[in-house]
């Protein structure tokens, strides 16, 4: 008997499915093994797409390894509108009563999830770093607090769905075999919903010169210890020697205006990254930054303070002036 459903929000990302969906699906699949062991049957894994999901997106959802794809359609759902989207999702939840509903902590996810929490009067766990079913069958959501210094377990024991948001980039994507998911169309009743309160007028897409940090395999990250604007360019120069690389920054470097793109900030209030190689230059290692890099494969840190916190989280530590070391590294790389 299959009575539990796990919903995963499939957010539109310029006609494609946002990568957070695949990360969450992989995690849901892992959780599902425990559910199956405990209940005798796995939960149904359901993709939930709102609005005009295109052919390409639908195909990738059907083949993603989900059991069901809910396609919520309606005239007011063509353009993203948080209040209308939330209402549509509420109606689907009321009809289908999912056990768990997962969202990526994207701008959409972090707006819709807490709104659903109110509309369905249920709990929402924010920016989870891990999800699991414990021995008693409770859905345990690990949430970070104090910039990631502390992780707390959260459960939602009495209400459904148990809603959680997860930072994109945190869970690894496992390629799942296609189950040729069944597409279920759902038409919410949205006549009463005011759609004029919030109107999306324009989407300003930021042109990037390099990969977004959460997609990069090599990250050269600079902190306050870089000292000035001119030194900051050194990070770019070093990054240019690597394929699929990006320059990241910490909050203080952003505050100093050395880094201009807030989207390159790594940490609890920025991006979570998991590159093959992370090089941190002049970074002290405040917990809120460390949390964002702790899943990197290999971490190299350069700081002149031998007691810098960042060293504790590093595979390789170099006590020294970041600018001098990076200059030498750049020179050495030029001979490759």
């Amino acid at each position: 008997m299959r009575d539990k459903k796990i919903f995963i929000y499939a957010e539109d990302d310029c006609g494609k499915v946002n990568s957070a969906y695949f990360e969450l699906l992989s995690k849901a699949c892992e959780i599902n093994k425990t559910i199956e062991a405990q209940d005798g049957a796995p939960a149904e894994l359901c993709a939930v797409a709102v609005g005009a999901a295109g052919e390409e997106a639908m195909k990738s959802l059907v083949d993603s390894g989900a059991d069901v794809v809910y396609n919520i359609k309606g005239s007011k759902l063509d353009v993203y509108n948080p209040s209308v989207f939330s209402e549509a999702l509420t109606q689907l939840c009321k009809a289908e009563v999912p056990y768990i509903f997962l969202f990526g902590s994207t701008a959409q996810g972090t707006e819709i999830a807490p709104t659903l929490g109110v509309k369905l009067h249920t709990g929402v766990a924010a920016h989870c770093v891990d999800l699991r079913i414990d021995g008693e069958g409770a859905f345990v959501q690990d949430v970070p607090a104090f910039g990631g210094k502390v992780i707390g377990e959260i459960i939602t024991p009495d209400t459904l769905p148990q809603i959680a948001t997860v930072k994109p980039g945190l869970f690894q994507v496992t390629k799942l075999p296609s189950k040729a998911a069944k597409i279920v169309s759902f038409q919410p009743i949205l006549d009463e919903v005011e759609s004029g309160g919030i109107v999306l007028k324009e989407v300003h897409i930021k042109k990037r010169n390099s990969l977004p940090v959460d997609k990069a395999e090599v990250i050269i990250c600079g902190g306050f210890g870089m000292g000035c604007d001119e030194n900051w360019e050194l990070l770019e120069k070093v990054a240019n020697y690597f394929e699929k690389s990006a320059v990241g920054c910490t909050r203080p470097a952003l505050d100093e205006d050395w880094a201009v793109d807030e989207g390159t900030m790594i940490g609890t209030s920025g991006k979570t990254v998991r590159p093959k190689l992370y090089i941190g230059a002049g970074i002290s290692g405040a917990m809120h930054h460390v949390c964002g890099i702790s899943d990197s494969d290999f971490i190299i840190s350069i700081n002149k303070d031998e007691n810098a916190e960042i060293f504790k989280t590093s595979d390789l530590k170099i006590v020294g002036d970041a600018v001098r070391i990076l200059t030498a590294l750049e020179k050495r790389l030029s001979k490759e």
Partner: peptide, 8 residues
């Protein structure tokens, strides 16, 4: 938002 800014 992830790719830039939404104007509402």
């Amino acid at each position: 938002y992830e790719n830039g800014k939404n104007e509402f």
